[in-house]
Each structure stands twice: as structure tokens, then as C-alpha cells.
Amino acid sequence: MVNFDDKRNFYRMLLNSEVNLTIIDDEINSKFVATCRDLSATGIAIEMSHPLELGTRLKAKVESANSAVQSLDVTGKVVRVEEESTDLYLVGVSIDDID
């Protein structure tokens, strides 16, 4: 682990990619599409039009634009929600598992 200028332990890769989200729920697994802003080895930042509650468990899949690179499938929980503007929220997800 290297300490970068922004005081993170892992490098954060900037993206602007579609991410397919599934909220893990006992009753209904809600699915929707959002934008992956960036990701690292331990987290993913997602832009969306509505907030999610802290602690919400979800699955996220970022498709690869290159057939030689595997898609990213992760499971995690919401650890941060920031309202950036009207109908634009930045949701921070801590990654628990990578498939």
C-alpha cells in the first residue's frame, strides 16, 4: 500500500462508466443503472439521481469496453452519501467482495 497525495492507501482510478446496480434486499432486489465516477481496490464512487441509505447492501457491475478485460463485479455497502446538486448524489460504496 502506497500513500498518495490524497492520503489514500490505494490509487483511485477515475472513470465515467455505466454501472448496473442491484440492491440486495430480502423482499425485492431493485435494479437500476447509474454512473461509476471512480473506483479503487476498496471502494467505488457512484453518481445517481437519488440517495441510498447508509448501510444499504448492493451489487455493482461495470462492463468492460475491451473483450480482453473482464467486467468488474463487486458486492459492498453504502458508507457515504453526498448531495452534489439537485437530483445528483455521490454514493460511496465500500467493497466487501469481488467476483
Rank of each mutant, 00 (worst) to 15 (best):
M1P: 13
M1Y: 14
V2H: 10
N3F: 04
N3H: 03
D5I: 13
D5K: 09
D6A: 07
K7W: 00
R8H: 04
Y11P: 03
M13S: 11
L14E: 08
L15K: 12
L15F: 03
N16Q: 11
S17P: 07
S17L: 05
S17G: 09
E18N: 11
N20A: 03
N20R: 07
L21N: 00
L21H: 09
D26N: 15
S30P: 05
F32H: 05
A34F: 03
T35L: 15
T35C: 13
T35D: 12
C36N: 12
L39T: 11
L39K: 13
S40T: 03
A41Y: 03
T42R: 13
G43T: 08
I44L: 04
I46M: 14
I46P: 01
S49H: 10
L52S: 04
G55E: 08
R57M: 07
R57S: 03
R57P: 04
L58S: 06
K59P: 04
A60Y: 07
K61E: 01
E63P: 03
S67F: 01
S67T: 05
A68I: 01
Q70W: 00
L72T: 10
V74M: 10
T75A: 06
K77N: 12
R80S: 09
R80L: 06
S85P: 08
S85G: 02
T86E: 12
L88D: 08
L90W: 06
L90G: 00
V91M: 01
G92T: 09
V93C: 13
S94K: 10
I95H: 01
I95G: 07
I95C: 02
D97S: 12
I98K: 14
D99F: 14
D99G: 15
